[in-house]
Design a protein around this nucleic acid. Structure first.
Lengths: 348, 348
DNA sequence: CCAAAACTTGTAATCGATTACATCTACTGT
DNA sequence: ACAGTAGATGTAATCGATTACAAGTTTTGG
């Protein structure tokens, strides 16, 4: 087997081949590549034409081993198949690949086995930095043993009581409150809330914001209107809220879902029963995913600056990974959400 | 700088540390891990407790260098922010991480610069296998120089005239024809087609299938009803087809879009003009993305078995990467699409 | 009871690059 | 013209693991 494998990649050109062909030592080849002005014009050309002729590409493993840097980052996602993360991944990949870094993705899926798996990836030195996107930072103790040198950043959710991570998120509580204030401003007095999964901090923050706005307006916080039980920010969780709506004698005039997809699921269930939105009920979401504007009715929602957060988070991680000593301070960037008014909420 | 970097990761435990602590040589530690029954019970325990106490994890770069295998695969995506790929990525990650392989993602974005970048990643031996998801295999010549040993597979689109790649796709032409046959079966005679981007083979196949079904039914293929000009399978391309619809004196009764998202964009534009779907026009899509069932009206579409294809493609690549000599044959798996009838098409 | 076989462990080469240090050459200024 | 210095290049150590081979130990069988 060992023989097979080495035979397999036998075709690979090494720095030795280039050195031989250019008539110089491997050290010179390495220098010609990394520090071009430290070699003569003549050798440089000899080296580069040897590189061209052989099609040489430096071996990543060898380079990593010596340089103690893999130029890779791990992006840990919750792994729910929802489209919220697509622009985030796009932004991350854009910045990282531009900087010559590879993006390794991992889906935590809330499974301890997988968390341990990715903890091992980090401990094996396979990545120079980690971005935990949403959700709980893995509680696996393995994560604690991560060499302090690998910078970790959190996106869309923070971990209270630590200052080891850079955090990139929005003020979920304030944003949720702003949305509910908007609904109140449109004349709604009885407003229900489809809460996100209890386990996630940002979902609890949004619920808190919902309560804040109600209290602030002197409206009662009716437990019958606070619908918990979501498992994820998905269609299903929205659909499951519909029975609670229909069971109510005194129905809300507006419903604020903690995520667009939950709003879609909820609306779908209502429309299946012949209700009109926003005619019969107003519905608002959170996130402003790509579908919000294309849905019928177009969804009133809170826009999270996903691309921008992705870009900033990537740049920050890059800085912390490559930064000279002093420049590794962690940051906490909290961007503002924008209310996007569309058709799913009507004035009453 | 060099000093800083090595100081940074100074915390890392090496096999030397474990060996010293267990009172054995590094060779024994390595064997205790890889071939546990080749060492004494006693040494095995000594080694494992040393590993536990030190929190040792073998360094990935060192292992890769020696073993000539990185246990990583590159998944190249077109990079359009649409949700089609989410379940695919999920399936891939599931299989690969289960097998101990990491998933590196790359967005080609149809840019030569990026293709060259990822070609270099492959040539640098950074991955053991490559999965090109949709779209054009990068035409960068760099891709040609890839050591023959790195297996490459294609998903959702093939490259005619090569037999170097395993291919996992659907019969787009047959599936499109089946959809159009369905529309004809529902009484439609004037059927338009929103074609996908000309550059992509599967889009052309779907267009061909559309023509097949019309001809087969003895219906004319009216160029005025074949709407080209899409850039991607996105909302925008669907929206841009709407003016063509409105410009027509003799309007189609049904429209077949080559992708769900284009169907959504098109429907949105029509509804904005006060048209009802399927009352005024029937619309059908292709893909059966998550939103198809939640849209209003729920979209009649062709289901592509994305998760299944992902799983199969991952397993095949795994086989080709680890396979003993003989077992590296390429495969071509072509799954069948299913017609999913919902509400966006009505019988006339 | 001793030679041969089987087993365990250690020594050292190896993977492919980077880089500290040594060496050699060429140029500068007095 | 020659000491001194700057610049170019080569030699060899190094990163951390794996593994062929050697050496040492135990078991087996006649």
């Amino acid at each position: 087997m060992a023989v097979d494998r080495s035979a397999q990649k036998a075709g690979a050109v090494t720095i030795q081949d280039v050195a031989r062909r250019a008539g110089v030592s491997t050290a010179t080849v390495s220098r010609a590549i990394a520090l071009p002005d430290r070699v003569t014009e003549a050798t440089r050309e000899a080296v580069f034409s040897a590189i061209r002729e052989t099609g040489y590409t430096p071996n990543a493993a060898a380079r990593s081993l010596r340089a103690k840097s893999t130029r890779m980052v791990l992006v840990l996602l919750p792994g729910i198949g929802n489209s919220f993360f697509t622009p985030v991944l796009n932004a991350l990949e854009e910045v990282f690949s531009e900087a010559g870094y590879g993006v390794l993705i991992g889906y935590a899926r809330n499974s301890p086995r997988r968390e341990t798996h990715y903890a091992r990836v980090i401990r094996a030195g396979q990545v120079d930095g980690v971005l935990v996107v949403t959700g709980n930072i893995p509680r696996d103790e393995a994560f604690v043993q991560i060499p302090g040198s690998v910078p970790i950043s959190l996106m869309f959710s923070e971990v209270p009581g630590t200052d080891e991570f850079s955090v990139f998120d929005v003020d979920n509580r304030a944003a949720a409150a702003a949305m509910v204030r908007h609904l109140i401003g449109q004349g709604h007095r009885r407003i229900a809330h489809i809460a996100g999964a209890d386990a996630s901090l940002e979902a609890r923050e949004r619920s808190a914001g919902y309560c804040d706005a109600l209290r602030e307006a002197g409206l009662p916080v009716d437990p019958a209107l606070l619908w918990r039980g979501a498992t994820n920010y998905d269609f299903g969780s929205g659909e499951r809220a519909a029975p609670r709506f229909f069971a109510l004698a005194d129905k809300p005039t507006a419903v604020f879902a903690a995520a667009d997809e939950m709003a879609f699921g909820f609306m779908r269930a209502l429309k299946n029963q012949g209700l009109d939105i926003p005619g019969d009920v107003s519905v608002a979401g959170f996130d402003d995913t790509e579908y919000a504007v294309h849905y019928d009715p177009a969804l009133t929602t809170m826009r999270q600056p996903r691309t921008e957060l992705g870009t900033l988070a990537a740049r920050d991680l890059l800085r912390r990974m490559t930064g000279k000593d002093g420049d590794v301070a962690i940051s906490h960037v909290r961007l503002k959400c924008d209310l996007v008014v569309r058709e799913s909420v009507r004035r009453i």
